[in-house]
Design a protein around this nucleic acid. Structure first.
Length: 464
RNA sequence: GGCGGCAUAGCCAAGUGGUAAGGCAGAGGACUGCAAAUCCUUUAUCCCCGGUUCGAAUCCGGGUGCCGCCUCCA
């Protein structure tokens, strides 16, 4: 597998540090509000990456944090007259509800910043001892100039960053590019004890401390949205490598934005579309299809029209699985035919080739469509073996379902007796050439969301 | 000012040197009692201008338009 590494700006062969074990860290949400579709893109995509790595036989340890204390949380909690903890817990819950709805699997660890204060304090102390950080009136700052390679991820030199920086209002810093490791508490603000007095950790240090605790000094994959590249990830590298003296991350992956029109979507711009609202309106599969239909490093433009189109795209997947199952009932018993196995192997190779090429989900989806086409061809054959049909169904379940989460093979559900009776009655009417009656029954079922399809193998039905 | 990205059919979208994947929508046809599903056929001077090359959507130069980062943000 090759992945594009933001740090080297090159596609590189992916090789974990420890053969088949992969350590993976994705920056999670700051839980002061509901997440939006742009946030969801990162979490959904990297979950698919994790699934694919597992499929490839890797043992993946996946960590995603919650930033449950920071300025925005404090502000939001004050505004609502509640505690930071209560607010954070509420939105962590909401986060999981959104992710569950989208079919994003849980990480192996979801550490919270507030539960790792000791680790952060330890790291900050080490940085001070090594001369990488300094205390200033209860705050602690990282001395960015102490790392000569600062800027290596975002490819900016110290000078360039300085010249582009806005006027720095914080006079406590030695240098405008220094960043806070520890922030002194204001009166009545949530705080923890530390060698520098009461305060709370800076944003960046939490990822350094928590990733180190759960995954070790060097991570294989560290990922997130492009907006985290600078300063967040840049600062993480500086801190972590100063702290441990080791390389922090082997492969940096950053996904593109979800745009509103041509503008980026972000909480701070206030043009967000929240997942909690979206999922009431669209199927989770359509949202997944939308987010995976474009290569992860390219931007996606959000629009209702596009997602509606994705719903239609999805219909072929649904029809294919329905038709495969229906055909199974009349197919001959027997193992899958060699030609079918052969074709499925080809499709597997094509799927892997797409994903191995910097996780090209757009191409992987087109392979899914090829498989669907093959499914229809096979279903239409006058004679077909059950093994062949179930092999195709299993393939779709595996690649379209387990990895991409776009194919949902529904379990058999018995139709209401009433509906069964209607289908039966319609068949009798058709046999008697009473098409008026037959069509009336079909229309009645259509109104109930049941689509009837007459095939050489009998009546096939599906829910619209 | 520095760094970077994008521009492919009505729409979504792959494609980093060999002559434009896939899906949606549209049109025509097959199948059907009629439908539906399916199948077949059909739709692209790859933003513009130069250059390199036997050959470029793909490389180089120059434009135009849009966007991102340099500041909290997936």
């Amino acid at each position: 597998m090759h992945v594009y590494n933001t740090q080297t700006r090159k596609r590189e062969l992916f090789q974990p540090l420890h053969d088949k074990n992969v350590t993976m860290y994705v920056c999670g949400p700051t839980v002061y509000n509901y997440i939006h579709i742009g946030n969801a893109r990162a979490f959904l995509f990297f979950d698919v990456v994790r699934r694919y790595l597992k499929y490839q036989g890797y043992h993946v340890t996946y960590v995603q944090n919650f930033t449950d204390v920071d300025d925005r949380l404090i502000e939001a909690a004050q505004k609502e007259d509640t505690t930071v903890k209560e607010l954070a817990e509420r939105y962590i819950q909401a986060y999981f509800e959104d992710m569950d709805a989208l079919g994003v699997q849980r990480a192996d660890h979801h550490p919270k910043a507030t539960e790792h204060i000791d680790e952060m304090v330890e790291g900050i102390q080490t940085l001070i001892e090594k001369g990488y950080a300094y205390e200033q009136d209860g705050d602690v700052y990282f001395r960015s100039q102490s790392k000569e390679d600062y800027g290596k991820l975002s490819h900016q030199s110290m000078e360039e960053l300085k010249s582009g920086a806005r006027v720095e209002v914080n006079e406590k810093k030695e240098n405008p590019l220094d960043f806070a490791l520890w922030k002194k508490a204001k009166p009545n603000e949530i705080s923890w004890d530390s060698p520098w007095g009461k305060g709370r950790p800076g944003w960046h240090i939490e990822c350094s401390a928590m990733s180190r605790k759960y995954l070790g000094d060097t991570l294989d994959l560290h990922a997130g949205g492009m907006d985290l590249c600078f300063p967040h990830h840049e600062n993480e590298i500086a801190q972590s490598e100063a702290w441990t003296g080791k390389r922090f991350v082997r492969y940096w992956l950053h996904n593109g934005y979800v745009n509103m029109g041509s503008e980026k979507m972000s909480k701070s711009l206030g043009n967000v579309v929240r997942v909690v609202d979206l999922r009431k309106k669209y199927s989770p599969l359509a949202l997944r299809y939308f987010l995976l239909s474009t290569h992860y490093r390219n931007p996606i433009a959000f629009s209702d029209e596009t997602i509606r189109q994705m719903e239609r795209n999805l219909e072929r997947f649904e029809t294919a699985t329905t038709n495969l199952k229906h055909r199974m009932e009349t197919a001959m018993e027997g193992e899958a035919e060699p030609e079918v196995e052969e074709r499925l192997n080809q499709l597997t190779q094509a799927f892997e080739a797409a994903m191995d090429d910097d996780l090209n989900t757009a191409n992987a989806i087109s392979v899914l469509h090829e498989a669907v086409k093959f499914a229809f061809e096979t279903v239409s054959r006058p004679v077909v073996l059950q093994g062949s049909l179930s092999a195709i169904l299993d393939w779709l379940r595996k690649f379209g379902g387990d990895i991409m989460g776009l194919v949902d093979v529904k379990e058999e559900t018995d139709l209401d007796q009433e509906i069964e009776a209607l289908i039966e009655e319609r068949q009798k009417a058709r046999a008697a050439k009473d098409f008026q009656r037959a069509d009336a029954i079909r229309d009645q079922l259509t109104a109930q969301g049941i689509i009837l399809e007459d095939t050489p193998q009998g009546v096939r039905w599906r829910r619209k």
